[in-house]
Design a protein around this nucleic acid. Structure first.
Length: 293
RNA sequence: GGUGCCAUAGCUCAGUUGGUAGAGCAACGGACUGAAAAUCCGUGUGUCCCUAGUUCGAUUCUUGGUGGCACCA
């Protein structure tokens, strides 16, 4: 499997089409937001033309009403891959969702699904009693993880508690972090470009999204704004505008800034992965040479 | 032309009763195995507009410039 990864806006889509065409194969999208059919403009889903040129998987395949996560993605992708490998010797995966990439490449621990009610209860408790209370609870239920976890991060604390309550066992005892073996080879190709160049592309793309009707798309999703998946760059800033918290211009600037921030965060994550071979998106020749090996 | 106000980090501004300065945003770095476009953490030297003066010492006070804004002619 060839994985094309890199920060948002770097130019993964264009290259993925060339690579997929070259191998006459199909593309698995690894994007935690393009997954949802309701979000198209704001998540920079490729044009229909490109989607028809090469078969794509995991694009607009789910609804924001579905709960989805990296573990489910691992299962689903492995299933699709099994099918694809019967027809194609090479499959292309492309996207920038870091955790989802790792889930496919290394696997994710086997943990039970969390009852949304439990999550709601714990979130409510956090709001009422404060983070110290939740920390104390975790210290009691899973002292090992208590000493490992970022105690400032409520999401981490709550998730550990969810697992403890759901399984009756400590979270730490189930966190094996073992890397699963895959029966296919993985080549990771990282795409990056000059920072100002990347930022210019991002800023420009946001303007294009607005011209393409992002405001309307966000407006149609305003009623769903409390869903987890709607906590997404490009939408939450416009929800703020709809709520009267800022001007449209400020919202657009905020989208640009948050997209840039997201790109930086992706680069931070990818930087520590030694398996990635880095290229500029224009180095097509070099990339194909690497793949040929 | 006159009067008043302003000039400090990339931006918006705070502050120093005279001892060379700090917030927000941006930028940069990091953590992160089931919410991950999420969540969380860390990083602030900048001719304090220029000039001359007072002073042991001026970004702070005074003189004169320059630029901007407002009001009056």
């Amino acid at each position: 499997m060839i994985i094309l990864l890199g920060p948002t806006g770097v130019g993964k889509t264009t290259l993925s089409i060339s690579v997929a065409n070259h191998f006459r194969t199909e593309i698995i999208s690894c994007d935690s937001r393009q997954l949802f059919s309701e979000m198209t403009i704001g998540t920079a889903v490729p044009d229909d033309e490109l989607l028809y040129a090469v078969p794509h998987h995991f694009i607009r395949s789910h609804s924001i009403l579905d709960t989805y996560n990296a573990a489910q993605f691992e299962i689903d992708v492995l299933g699709v891959l099994e099918q694809l490998f019967t027809k194609h010797p090479v499959v292309v995966m492309t996207g920038g969702s870091m955790l989802y990439i790792d889930a496919v490449c290394k696997g994710i621990d086997d943990l039970p699904d969390i009852d949304p009610k439990l999550r709601a209860t714990l979130t409510e408790r956090l709001k009422h009693f404060g983070i110290n209370h939740m920390r104390a609870e975790l210290k009691l239920l899973d002292p090992v993880y208590y000493h490992e976890v970022d105690l400032q991060n409520p999401v981490r604390i709550l998730h550990a508690l969810e697992i403890c309550y759901t399984t009756g066992k400590t979270f730490s005892s189930q966190r094996t972090k073992t890397v699963k073996e895959r029966n296919f080879r993985i080549v990771k190709i990282g795409l990056n470009r000059d920072r100002t160049e990347l930022y210019n592309r991002i800023n420009q793309r946001v303007d294009e999204m607005m011209a393409a009707g992002l405001e309307q798309e966000a407006g149609s999703l305003y009623g769903s704004r409390h869903l987890n998946t709607m906590n997404t760059v490009g939408y939450r800033e416009l929800f703020d505008y709809f709520d009267g918290n800022c001007t449209l211009k400020e919202a657009v600037e905020k989208i640009k800034a948050n997209t840039r921030k997201y790109a930086r965060k992706q680069l931070t994550w990818f930087r520590k992965d030694p398996e990635i071979h880095w290229f500029h998106p224009d180095q097509k020749k070099e990339i194909f040479e690497l793949i040929a090996q």
